[in-house]
Amino acid sequence: MSVIFLLLTASILIAALFLLAFLWSVKKGQYDDQQSPPVRMLFDDKPTNNNQ
């Protein structure tokens, strides 16, 4: 019996955590520009070359 109470609280808390993560990411504008992030992550940062 009591284990169900524990599991219930845990499951709802975890779900709520994901909800908060979602709301936070929307608020921070992570979905505002859906085209550049997938391209941006493929750019390599060249090691800075002193000769240039």
Partner: peptide, 14 residues
């Protein structure tokens, strides 16, 4: 950009 609807969807879905 009005994001309130997205928030509402998120909460309702949860």
């Amino acid at each position: 950009l009005d994001k309130s609807k997205i928030f509402k969807v998120g909460v309702a879905g949860f």
